[in-house]
Structure formats: structure tokens, C-alpha cells
Amino acid sequence: MKGKKKTIALVIYFGLLFLPIYWMINMSLRTNADILASFALFPIDLTFANYIKIFTDASWYSGYINSMIYVSINTLISLATALPAAYAFSRYQFMGDKHLFFWLLTNRMAPAAVFALPFFQLYSALHLIDTHIAVALAHCLFNIPLAVWILEGFMSGIPREIDETAFIDGYSFPRFFITIFIPLIRAGVGVTAFFCFMFSWVELLLARTLTVTDAKPIVATMTRTISATGLDYGLLAAAGVLTIVPGALVIWFVRNYMAKGFALGRV
């Protein structure tokens, strides 16, 4: 009885959640003039012109490729550096640990607008402007702290007896960490990977500041739909629908990590 009520509530929530997405899909299949002229629950004059433009115009589709490159680099760096660090924060006491832990998160707390110019100057001085690595590095500023905090939360939930038993059994630290410990927190690793991907994917200000053409991300390309004649809502909506796809694939791949619990005592 109770389980059924839960499911019904969930289905209603998902229905509401889907409405704005449906409207975006609806808009993406109509021309701009049609969107602005009248209300239509379904696209009447169905057109794929917006999608065709994105898939045939290099300045559009290269944006998706550029974004995917630097987002992947960023996610890998964030996870690779944050995993050992989060372990240190959850298990050890060392000089300045609490301050350092909180300092990491403070890097997400500043309003970004005024920081655009200093970022441009810093990366120009290093001759990194308009490269994928520049954006990937800049996004580490907010993604690494996020990854450390989320992973630390999951690691602290694992009893320390597991570590102790493994060390007594003669496991070296790297072997214990990779073969025993990481599998235990895979729900955390999955959700962290997805959030790193997501925050880097939608970040606009730094990505736009640090790129010109060669590494221009899709989020920056999408701001181009604002022109002197107004906004091309249809094109923007089509680009919006397509920006969802890579991230949805990421969460599809990490779904098993996120959903499967674990049984204690398998060490």
C-alpha cells in the first residue's frame, strides 16, 4: 500500500519535472516565428531545420566536441586527485587538515563576474588561451573541492576496521585503495563523476573567457543565438536538447555504481 503511494507521488513529480523539458523539445521543432506567434501544445508545422543547422554547421557541432574534450579531461583530473585527498581527510589527522578542507570549498564561494579578467590575464601569461587544457584546469577550481567533499562524505561512512583488517592482512596501500576501498564507495564515485561532468559542462563565464575559436565550448556558441534581430528561440531550444544528451549518457554509464549498495564484511 505504502510503496504504491510513493510510486504515484514519484511519477507525478517526474511528470512535472518533464514539462519544461517537453516545452523545450516542442520549441526545438518549430520555427522562431511560429514559437512567438501562437501557443501550440504540439508542433503543427513540424520542422527539423534547427537540428539540421546544428549538425551541418561546423561552428555549431565543433562546440559540442570542444566541450566534451575539456569536460572529460577535467572530470578525470578531478577524480584522480580527489580520491586520495578525500581518503586523507576522512582517515588521518594532519597539520592544518580542517582549515585546508574548508579552504577548498571556499573556492566555490566567490561571485564569478569580476574574476573573469584576472583569469584571462593569468592564462594569457601562460600562453594557454584557447586550449582545452586551459578550461579543464580552470574548472578544477570548483570541481576538485566538490569531488573532495562528496567523496569524503562517502568515505567517512565506511568503518575504519576495514582498513585496519586489510593492512593487517598485508595489503599495500595502493592495492587496498584500488581493489577494496574504491569498490566500497562506488556510489560516491559515480555521483561525483556525474557532478564534475555536469558543473564543467554548464559553466559559461570561464569557458567563454578562456577560449576564442579552437576550443570554443557549446555553451558559448549558444549565446550567439542572440542577435540584432532578437533571440532565435527554436535554434537555442534545439541546441539545449542536444546539450542534455552527453550528460544523460554519463549518468546512464554510472547508474550501476550509484544504485547498487554493498554488503559489509567481504574483505
Partner: peptide
């Protein structure tokens, strides 16, 4: 999981634009 991820993956200014149309009393759902 995938349904929950959908809103998170849209660039923020695009979300503003879509909601601008979505909530318009004349042409929005």
C-alpha cells in the same frame, strides 16, 4: 536517475530562456 539528471545538464542561461517562454502567459505552456 536519467530523468533527474535532465534539468541539471542544460546550460543555465538556456534554462532562463526556456522558462521565459514556458511561463509566458500568451505562448507558454
Amino acid at each position: 536517475l536519467v530523468t533527474l539528471a535532465l534539468p541539471l545538464l542544460i546550460p543555465w542561461n538556456t534554462i532562463g530562456t526556456i522558462w521565459f517562454i514556458f511561463t509566458r502567459p500568451d505562448i507558454g505552456l
